[in-house]
Amino acid sequence: MNDQPDATEPLEEEVRDPYLEYGTALAERLGGRAVVEHDTIRIYVDRSNWVETIRRARDEEGLDFFSWLTGIDWSKDVEVGDTVAEPDELEERFEVMCRLSSVEGVAGAHFIAALPKDDAVIDSITGVFGGAEWHEREAHDMFGIEFTGNPNLSPIYLPEGFIGHPLLKSYPLLAREVKPWPGTVDVEDMPPEPEEPAGGGEA
């Protein structure tokens, strides 16, 4: 664990980014692809290696603190909210994202596995982290992702008999269908004033 980033170290030289170095090295060791931005390390792994990577991250890299697991819906069909920046180039998919970190320092990474939309199945990591059970159930509720091997994949938030997966981009926000959120109207009408200071900067 000597190569974990040290946040106390001032980043004087532009070249040296401890998070980037750590992330790239970590991805190399675990067999994934690293993307590091804003000190946030993302490691893309194949879904066939999902459980194995998580286990190795825990056992070999000391990332033994299970922080959370969730899904992301990358979709062109957006019912509510913003679309992605370039919808045409988007490859539609689910991503399962799991954050592991260490309880000794700032080391931590987000492991991401992409799943095709029509086959959203991935192995459960409950065998590695017992705490993942609830998080997987939540992702199952919200995105409809199947976690094979989860001992109890029943709905955790949604009532019984609920149809649909609320966090899908294609799922409408029914309350807003009935009555639009007034705030959105405000913002759209407001003229952009990027130069004017918004607060009390002059004190």
């Binding site: 931005e37 804003h38 000190d39 946030t40 993302r42 922080s67 920046a85 954050r99 987000h110 913002v187 407001m190 952009p192 004033e193 990027p194 004017e196 200071p197 918004a198 607060g199 009390g200 900067g201 002059e202 004190a203």
Partner: peptide
């Protein structure tokens, strides 16, 4: 000193992904 830095009134956040955590009274 001032309480607030200059920020645009309409916030358009550049494309990117970030995780920020803090020590809440209850934990991470």
């Amino acid at each position: 000193g001032p309480l607030r830095a200059k920020a645009p009134r309409v916030l358009k956040v550049p494309k990117g992904q970030i995780y920020v955590r803090g020590e809440n009274p209850k934990g991470e």
